[in-house]
Design a protein around this nucleic acid. Structure first.
Lengths: 193, 193
DNA sequence: CTAGCATGTAAGTAATTACTTGCATGAAAG
DNA sequence: CTTTCATGCAAGTAATTACTTACATGCTAG
């Protein structure tokens, strides 16, 4: 027996199926079967099918951003800090992978998802800009467009994440750690004065 | 009147609708309406609904990769070449944006799409590795893991592409040119000896 | 023990969807 | 002019889907 509540099991099943097949193709019957509950139970809990997705979106909108986590452990040593951020960012994206995938598939039917997902890079961008500015003032990085630099770093991490999450090792079987490490090595050297 | 053939109009409509809503939610009736043809015409041309997607996939599998284009205009001046590549790569992705989006949504139902899409970074990676090796031999870049470096560059471009294609200017309204230029500035400086 | 609450079961309904068939029409080609 | 071919139109079908209603069952709290 699962220790999770009925509602949780339904949400888990829906998250999985919708992220795999998309909202329309994930039928309420299939969700009920995977959750191990009767189909009517879904409607008693969430009213209608959209209600399931709304609950999932709410669940993730309270998801703790990695924001605070990033600011911890700042050493003001460029490569160390950036690698630390990069690994955390990557792992964070992996932890909400299914939700990100739903975001890709259901942006039209559920615009709220897109907003929720867009918030992530937006917040991270601002944190990074702050960090880079401070580092510049400390004379540790050269004069550069901080926003563009922040966006670049986010883009690398996101690119690696998508590649791994969607294509696995087809493009490269290189361990993620080495990939991130090399990326950050290049990136931090590119920022150095 | 459109100058395109009936089959082409159907494929265009299907590409648009499936990339927006996903395969299941894009009904044959909606595709027919958008294409301005009768629903039966779809089945006469493509047999069944899957036939439409198969035709779309075939269409894109003959799509000229940007591979040859990249090798043109090589100046063996690092930043110039990488920026040139980056812009071409980005524009290429934008030109097949709808197809990429379908790839994200229908990987489960149509595994062929994923293979087709994975081929793109795979080919580009090999081209880039070659270029970086040659540049290393010419003493223009430092000793580094060339595969990881190539993957990093591809990841940045892909990240920027996804950000623009999916989120528009929500994350940043910075012009794409400046974004790419700064990214390449950092990246090429990070590779320099 | 009992009252309430969550869930299962059974049955059904209205709408939608992919797909078929038969026939009419109009344009192009021989 | 006539045949052929692509398409439109009308009607229908079997399956699926989201969702409802009514009733039975079992667990838990008072």
């Amino acid at each position: 027996m699962s220790t999770k509540s009925t509602a949780e099991r339904i949400l888990d099943a829906a998250l999985q199926l919708v992220s795999e097949k998309g909202y329309t193709a994930a039928t309420t019957k299939a969700i009920a079967d995977l959750a191990g509950v009767n189909e009517v139970t879904i409607f008693r809990h969430f009213g209608n099918k959209r209600g399931i997705l709304k609950a999932i979106i709410e669940q993730f909108s309270y998801f703790p951003l990695l924001q605070e986590e990033i600011n911890k452990n700042v050493t003001w040593e460029l490569e160390t800090d950036l690698l630390n951020f990069s690994v955390k960012h990557f792992n964070f994206l992996m932890s909400i992978k299914d939700f990100v995938m739903i975001g890709f598939k259901e942006a039209m039917q559920f615009p709220e998802i897109n907003e929720e997902i867009a918030n992530i890079p937006l917040h991270i961008k601002n944190e990074l800009i702050h960090y880079l500015q401070e580092m510049h003032e400390r004379g540790k990085i050269r004069e550069i467009d901080f926003e563009a630099a922040a966006l670049s770093l986010i883009a690398v991490n996101f690119g690696h994440f998508i590649s791994r999450a969607r294509l696995g090792t087809i493009v490269s079987d290189m361990p993620t750690e080495i990939l991130l490490k090399t990326s950050i090595s290049i990136f931090s050297r590119g920022l150095a004065p």
